[in-house]
Each structure stands twice: as structure tokens, then as C-alpha cells.
Design a protein around this nucleic acid. Structure first.
Length: 211
DNA sequence: AGTGCGATTGACT
DNA sequence: GTCAATCGCACTA
């Protein structure tokens, strides 16, 4: 990406202004579905990278698989922020996970962003991931975070405001949304709280979960 | 203060 | 398809 691109980060249709918080659905499952097709924008010194959200998971109130299940701790406190804030944590000692807080202030719940279809700043993402293949740049929650350089420093950020990381409107109707069990969890594993774009090759997870 | 465990990934058979 | 690396954190004592 050249210098002109970095100077005009918001020229693309759809990504030009953050989603107003009032437009975000007030419950976690609705938000998880709503975020499919929306744009995630990362602004860095070297330029802007963005992608279309194609896969999410809901971690609802009272969910034994959710990090907020046993109450607020130093790690998970961002989950208790008003909907539309970032909760970022390190999983398995190596992969950062990006979540969007999803309820009113004081209630802990969130939506995990699991995969993106890369949009702008692809060369930046390729550098961050040390791979070329566009399909694999952000297919999976840890890969997504690496591609966009998301780490704990972004924890607690308001994603409904311009800044280093924010949510933008999608360009058009995303297409048919599928639903399945969540990936990689042991507790409350049967609930169908994963959402994904059926037509997208940028979705993670085994084929068997896709129906 | 010690311990067990993941909302994963990449390397490998 | 299988499997181990890796480390911050929550939990126990």
C-alpha cells in the first residue's frame, strides 16, 4: 500500500464512519448475528487495514463457557462495559481474541469475532501474518488479531468511535447466515451460538459444523 | 506460592 | 487427520 492510501483511509464505501451504539442490538445473540457483514477497521501508523466480519460467536449471560461466568476479574472487566467495547485476551499463551461487549454496563457478555474477509490494507496484514494467502490472513480469531495487530493494549476500547479500532457499516446485504455450535469449548458446547456467512470461504472451522 | 487449564495455531503423520 | 507449544490468569491453600 502506498502513501496516498494511508492519507485517505476512509475513502471506501461502508467503512467511513463508526456504527452508532444506538444501532447495536441490545442482546448478545442479536449482536452476534448483526455483526456479520459489518466492517472492522484497524488504523495503524503504517496505514489502515480492514475486513468484513464473516464469523462470530455469542457468549451470553449465564453461559458457562463465557469468561464473565464467575463474575468480574482484572482480565475480563471490559466484558462488563456497555455494548460496543473491545474485550481482548490472550488464549493458549499465544493467540489474542477480540470480542465486542454486548449488554448494558455492568452485565458481562460478549461476541467473539472469529473471522474476516480482508478488505483494505491487505499488504499490511500479509506483513503482520508473514503469509501471502489472502484466504488465511484472518480466518480464525487468533489469526485475525495477528493480521490487525490486536493485543491487550486495545482492551476496553470503544469500537463505536473513530480510533485505532472501530466497527463500520457493511456495504450491502451480506447474504445467508448459518448457525452452529461454537468451536473449541467444553462447557455449554451444544448451544447454537456461532454465526457465519454461508457463502464465505473466509470462515474458519471444520466443514462438519457448517450445517 | 503453586497448579491446571484453555473461546488456537502451525507443524506434522 | 493428530498433537504439542505456550503463558496469563483464576483458583486453591
Amino acid at each position: 500500500m502506498g502513501r496516498a492510501d494511508a492519507l485517505k483511509p476512509n475513502r471506501h464505501e461502508g467503512g467511513h464512519s463508526p456504527l452508532p451504539r444506538a444501532e447495536l442490538p441490545v442482546d448478545t445473540v442479536s449482536l452476534a448475528r448483526y455483526l456479520i457483514g459489518k466492517i472492522l477497521v484497524r488504523e495503524m501508523a503504517e496505514g489502515v487495514a480492514s475486513g468484513r466480519i464473516v464469523e462470530t460467536e455469542a457468549y451470553v449471560v449465564g453461559d458457562a463457557a463465557g469468561h464473565a461466568y464467575r463474575g468480574m476479574t482484572p482480565r475480563n472487566r471490559s466484558l462488563f462495559l456497555e455494548r460496543g467495547h473491545a474485550y481482548v485476551y490472550l488464549a493458549y499463551g499465544s493467540a489474542y481474541m477480540l470480542n465486542v461487549s454486548s449488554e448494558i454496563a455492568g452485565i458481562g457478555a460478549g461476541v467473539l469475532i472469529r473471522a474476516l474477509e480482508p478488505r483494505d490494507g491487505i499488504s499490511i496484514m500479509q506483513r503482520n501474518r508473514q503469509i501471502e494467502r489472502v484466504r488465511d490472513l484472518a480466518r480464525g480469531p487468533g489469526r485475525l488479531a495477528t493480521a490487525l495487530r490486536v493485543d491487550r493494549r486495545l482492551d476496553g476500547l470503544d469500537l463505536c468511535r473513530e480510533g485505532p479500532l472501530w466497527l463500520g457499516r457493511g456495504d450491502h446485504d451480506p447474504g445467508e447466515i448459518g448457525q452452529s455450535a461454537r468451536i473449541g469449548i467444553a462447557r455449554d458446547a451444544d448451544r447454537l451460538l456461532r454465526f457465519y456467512l454461508r457463502s464465505s470461504p473466509f470462515v474458519s472451522g471444520p466443514r462438519s459444523l457448517k450445517e
